[in-house]
Design a protein around this nucleic acid. Structure first.
Length: 642
RNA sequence: GCCGAAGUAGCUCAGCUGGUAGAGCUACUGAUUUGUAAUCAGUAGGUCGGGGGUUCGAUUCCCUCCUUCGGCUCCA
């Protein structure tokens, strides 16, 4: 007998060799039906795999991340089985589960998959799923495994086998399909009731550009049809929330073929949001002792050679223009210009820390396939600043920058983000990274200490640092699930040396400053793109490009409407008056769709009482208020950010 | 940059196998003077992404370029 401990601490006894399925069954048949896989002593196992020793187990259902992933992993195998049935001789790469579904990378030779074939493949999968084929786990010796895939002439699986040791190789078999796989899998294909193949894409084998590009098929499956229907509805919802859709509908920005790809044009409402973000940034930076500077958009090649950017980033900068035999580049970053400002006048320790801020416009030649609405563009305006400080001041300065992030995120109600601490890879010193092992170690330790001290949760990632030092990135997700670096906080111990920046310390010696690069409000492009999705276009009042719309019941009240408008304008509020000869219902509908936070309906009563009938976007009628009170209230509401 | 798909009016979209395009919303004009999510009527609006080719004739077929979308790679 073995003792099985469940997550609630209860212990049950079973015959040795009982499976997690048996455990579930002994609790209730309903549970056994819902369970997909099980965590056995911390490892995810097949539900049917015999357990021979005492174990802690957790039964995983659809609601559990790994239960779902087991299901999708098995779905990838089902798709592979269908592919082999439809395209004999197809070569298979890898087929893992992902956050929303699964994919399989396949090699069809010169053949191209059509939409019709994708539909047929989907049907084939459903047909095979209904056959209720069991997923069978088999331990295989390396020699046998190699022989199997040699006979099958599958170079990809053979390459994967090279990295595996004898004794750790398992095959999974279902129906006529056998795959090299670690598992685990659901008990049988019949669990899969709903199938949707989403897209076909190219993907380099093992993620390496130098390798052959395989065909990747993305799909998603569910245990119930209605879950698929809900998922399709969710995709629709996300599309509505996509900043590209909202940006067009709300007239925030546009692109034009003749202007160029990745070069957004800000419409008046977009520009209004930019102004408010800059006002917020300037206020906070002013409060924290930053000073503002302005720098040109271009510079000589020599500047970027000195900064060290050119060898690393030449390909992602716009090609240079040549004037009188000298190459000039559009700036892809503001730091070199700021370093020149630091170095322009002699500095003393009394000047430190020096915080230079600029909403600098940069141009980056992003690969054409990378452009993505406002989130990935070629011209961008960054909430940039460089802090020059002494080693002693570093911790406090770095901490203050982090505090600023947290403050901003609170203002915008940004809760879903992750902090990523990027460090260097020692093997790449001198290549990807500045070759100064001591300073790397020192600064990475400093940053880690600050992070731990601040108590902010973070993940540490090796080999993701900037070439000049470690950094912290704030990661967020777009409506359609793409991950982006929103803001960044970087340490730079290299450029002070390169630019020969120094200050005179208390002992009258020259000393190198440390530099912090920071951009808590990201770039206008990415931040506004993100905010559009974050708020689903419903900007808070202080940030809304159109804060109040005055809607007269009929044009008899236009004069009073103008009076109200002028009064609100006087207080710096963004207000419009709907002068169209439309019915009030139509005016309200159009304003609701524009997502204007406040609507003021005015008619006979309001005019006589010098009042307004207040309506909140999405919330309906809020009742009548005197104009005076309305002004007072709305000014209170926006005061914090003005 | 690579793989795949798409591009028809300002927006959302229709247009069978080649015979030079249509709806709704928007805009404009007129009527209506309206009390909390669409008043009615009329008018205008398109070298069917650009260029080349095949054809008597191309939005439709072919080539090419541009742009966008889904991925991959990249991301200071």
């Amino acid at each position: 007998m073995i003792n099985i401990t469940l997550p609630d601490g209860s212990v049950r006894q079973y015959e040795a060799g009982a499976s997690a399925y048996d455990v579930a069954m002994s609790i209730s048949p309903g549970l056994a039906k819902a369970v997909l896989s099980a965590e056995v002593n911390g490892q995810v196992w097949d539900l049917t795999r015999p357990i021979t020793t005492d174990a802690n187990i957790k039964l995983l259902k659809w609601e559990d991340e790994w239960g779902k992933k087991t299901f999708w992993h098995s779905s990838a195998h089902l798709m592979a089985e269908a592919l082999e049935a439809m395209f004999p001789g197809v070569k298979l790469g890898i087929g893992p589960p992902i956050d929303e579904g699964f994919y399989y990378d396949i090699d069809l030779g010169d053949r191209k998959l059509t939409e019709e074939e994708l539909t047929a493949l989907e049907a084939k999968m459903k047909e095979l799923a209904a056959k209720d084929s069991k997923f069978i786990r088999k331990d295989v010796g390396k020699t046998d495994a190699v022989k199997y895939f040699t006979d099958k002439a599958d170079p990809y699986k053979l390459e994967l086998l090279e990295g595996l040791q004898d004794g750790e190789i398992t095959f999974y078999e279902q129906g006529n399909f056998v795959d090299l796989c670690r598992g685990p899998h659901i008990p049988s294909t019949s669990y899969i009731k709903a199938v949707k193949l989403l897209s076909i894409a190219g993907a380099y084998w093992r993620g390496d550009e130098k390798n052959k590009q395989l065909t990747r098929i993305y799909g998603v499956t569910f245990p119930k049809q209605n879950q698929l229907d809900e998922y399709v509805a969710l995709l629709e919802e996300r599309k509505k929330r996509d900043h590209r859709t909202l940006g067009r509908e709300l007239e925030i920005f546009t692109f034009d073929d003749e202007v160029g790809p990745g070069l957004p044009l800000w419409l008046p409402k977009g520009a209004a949001i930019i102004e408010k973000l800059e006002a917020l940034a300037k206020k906070n930076e002013n409060d924290q002792g930053y000073v503002r500077v302005k720098t040109p958009h271009i510079a000589k090649e020599a500047l970027y050679i000195r900064s060290g950017h050119l060898p690393y980033y030449a390909e992602s900068m716009f090609p240079p223009m040549e004037l009188d035999g000298t190459k000039y580049y559009l700036k892809a970053m503001n730091c070199p210009h700021h370093h020149k400002i630091f170095g322009a006048l002699p500095k003393s320790y009394r000047d430190m820390p020096l915080r230079l801020a600029e909403y600098g416009t940069c141009y980056r030649y992003e690969q054409s396939g990378e452009l993505f609405g406002l989130m990935r563009v070629r011209s961008l305006q960054m909430n940039d600043a460089h802090i020059y400080c002494t080693k002693e001041q570093f911790e406090e300065e770095f901490m203050k920058v982090n505090d600023l992030y947290v403050k901003y995120f609170k203002i915008f109600g940004i809760e879903k983000y992750s902090m990523r601490f990027s460090t260097h890879a020692p093997a790449k010193l001198g290549a990807k990274y500045i070759d100064n092992p001591t300073l790397w170690k020192e600064t990475e330790t400093m940053v880690r200490n600050v992070l731990v001290k601040s108590g902010l949760p973070f993940v540490e990632v090796a080999d993701e640092a900037a070439f000049y030092g470690p950094k912290i990135d704030i990661q967020v997700w777009s409506a359609i699930g793409k991950e982006f670096t929103l803001a960044t906080n970087q340490v730079d111990f290299a450029q002070a040396e390169r630019f020969d920046l120094w200050f005179t310390n208390e002992k009258n010696e020259k000393e190198r400053p440390l530099i912090i690069h920071r951009a808590p409000l990201s770039t206008h492009e990415r931040f506004i793109g993100f905010l559009l999705e974050h708020y689903a276009g419903k900007f808070p009042v202080w940030l809304a490009p159109e804060q109040i719309a005055i809607l007269p019941i009929s044009d008899k009240f236009l004069d009073y409407g103008k009076e109200v408008r002028d009064e609100l304008k006087k207080h710096g509020l963004a207000v419009t008056l709907d002068e169209r000869p439309e019915k009030i219902g139509k005016k309200i509908r159009d304003t609701e769709i524009r997502k204007v936070p406040y609507m003021l309906v005015i008619g006979e009563k309001e005019m006589n009482d010098r009042a307004v009938a207040v309506r909140r976007q999405g919330q309906g009628d809020q009742g009548v208020k005197s104009l005076e009170n309305f002004v007072y209230d709305i000014l209170q509401e926006v005061a914090e950010y003005r």
